[in-house]
Amino acid sequence: MTDVIELSGLTKAFGATVAVAGLDLAFAAGARHAVIGPNGAGKTTLLHLISGELRPTSGRIRYDGRDVTRGSRVKRSRLGIARTFQQPTVWSSLSVADNVALAAWPHTPARGTWLRSRYRSLAEDCGRHLETVGIATLAGRPAGALSHGERRMLDIAMALAAEPRVLLLDEPAAGLTEHGVERLLTALRALPPEVTVVVVEHDFAFVSALADTVTVLHDGRLLATGTPAQITADAAVRAAYLGDLDELGDLDELGDLDRVGEAGGPHVAGEAV
């Protein structure tokens, strides 16, 4: 499998705070890849760097082999990277259907979408995305009037409407009911196999249900990569999440992540440290 996204030496610092430090990570095409880690690990920052909301302090981002580190957010969206947000963001003055249509607009080949007739057919077309996430009945509602859960579904529908090659999801299950999570999983499983899905999540059940690869971040660094089962079993991951100090000695050792990968970088979960 080829890697659709490659990150090398990716670093992002906000003044003295280093959110992401020297990350080397690759996302395979068609993968269902989850990124987890404790608060402050840099997960959302990572998504921002990939989608283009933030520019890295140093390092490279490759998309399909092409260097896009300098590319703007708009350009990366046009390349097929779509995302949702930790706080679902929608255009509140417009209706739900308009929100999805507008999200799909830059990705439609049709010229002149600003003509009412073309726009209308685009909006109709986008109805299926609303159905996928289950809010088709709300199509006429102003997006500002939606509840949190509905808004999150709309956010996801907007990302889907862009028919992306890479879908970045930032804590999509947060605040959803069980039924909502089920719906979300169904929608994600129904995606075409070529689409790469990168999910940042805290809900490990969700992660296990969806992902085939899990990456753990800690303090902006890569801690471990592997299948969900391997990650659950990994001692270093447990220590990072649970602070199991007896296992790894005192705080200094815990903070010094270079020790974690003494054999040369972050390890694959399950291998002896």
Binding site: S77, A82, P106
Partner: peptide, 22 residues
Amino acid sequence: SPVGKLLLAGRDHEARMRSAGH
């Protein structure tokens, strides 16, 4: 027309518009 919608959306959340590719 849809032009008005573009303006309204840009007013409501400009960054989201950029994120969508506008």
